[in-house]
């Protein structure tokens, strides 16, 4: 297919079936460095399965999944893939509820993940400053000592984005980041993600069309496990097949 070098994420002909149901059917997607890609598509199109495959939760039956043009992700487990520099935000915000906002970020902060470095870890001034910076970016500075469980739904989403930032990944996979957010929060999130995409690759899965419009990025529409259309949002949403299979319904 296309040249693999110089890509951040390269999926070619990826297929996976669960009990005979083809969740992904020869899916091919490319994401370049410092590029944002928005993925839309109806329920069951395989968006989350695709993320599961990239992050090592699910193994594909067939196809090639490369990170940074060379690392084969299908051979690695979740922790190894996370440490390569792929961060994931889940559809349902998953933060560590019984711990404080600060602790959530401290655990996410990019540091050696081994047992003994973690056991003897003491936060350096630089680490503390970095966490403070992230707290400010995601507007949770005032709530840093609160338990994550006490945050509102939108704040949990933002905390999870903060944890992604703390991981300092090269590629961010963001699954429905604005679900349950107010309109103004949605606008802010779009701004934040665009800001992040200046230096890193970001893949956003979202249903909210006005949010996708705000992102102003390349759009890929998935359906039944493969790519239906690609291009700008206007191109994709004008595509008659997309209207029939997704938007029109």
């Amino acid at each position: 297919m296309t040249d693999k070098t110089g890509t951040m994420l390269y999926l070619d002909g990826v297929s996976v079936a669960f009990d005979g149901f083809k969740a992904l059917n020869s899916l091919s997607i490319i994401v370049h460095p410092a590029e944002m890609l928005a993925i839309i598509g109806p329920n069951g199109a395989g968006k989350t399965t695709m993320m599961d495959i990239i992050t090592g939760k699910t193994r594909p039956d067939d196809g090639e999944v490369l990170f940074d043009g060379r690392t084969d992700l299908t051979k690695l487990d979740e922790a190894a893939i996370a440490n390569l520099g792929i961060g994931r935000k889940f559809q349902k915000p998953t933060v560590f509820e019984s711990q404080t906002v600060w602790d959530n970020l401290e655990m996410a902060l990019k540091k050696p993940r081994g047992i003994f470095p973690t056991l003897f870890y003491t936060a350096s001034a630089a680490d503390i400053a970095r966490i403070g910076e992230i707290l400010e970016t995601v507007r949770l500075l005032a709530r840093k000592d609160h338990l994550a469980a006490d945050l509102s739904h939108g704040q949990k989403q933002w905390l999870e984005i903060g944890m992604l930032l703390a991981q300092d990944p090269k590629l961010l996979l963001v699954d429905e980041p604005v679900a349950g957010m107010t309109d103004s929060e949605t606008v802010e999130t779009a701004k934040l993600l665009k800001d992040i995409a200046r230096t890193r690759s970001v893949v956003v899965v979202e249903h909210d069309m006005s949010f996708v419009r705000d992102l102003d990025s390349r759009v890929t529409c998935l359906a039944e496990g493969s790519v239906l259309a690609e291009g700008s949002l206007d191109q994709v949403s004008a595509n008659p097949v997309v209207i029939e299979r997704y938007l029109g319904r």
Binding site: E78, A79, A82, N83, F96, E97, S98, M107, A108, Q167
Partner: peptide, 14 residues
């Protein structure tokens, strides 16, 4: 204890 797979996606070897 609270969210095993989340810890894994943070890069910890659970």
């Amino acid at each position: 204890r609270d969210a095993e797979s989340r810890a894994r996606f943070l890069g910890y070897r659970v």
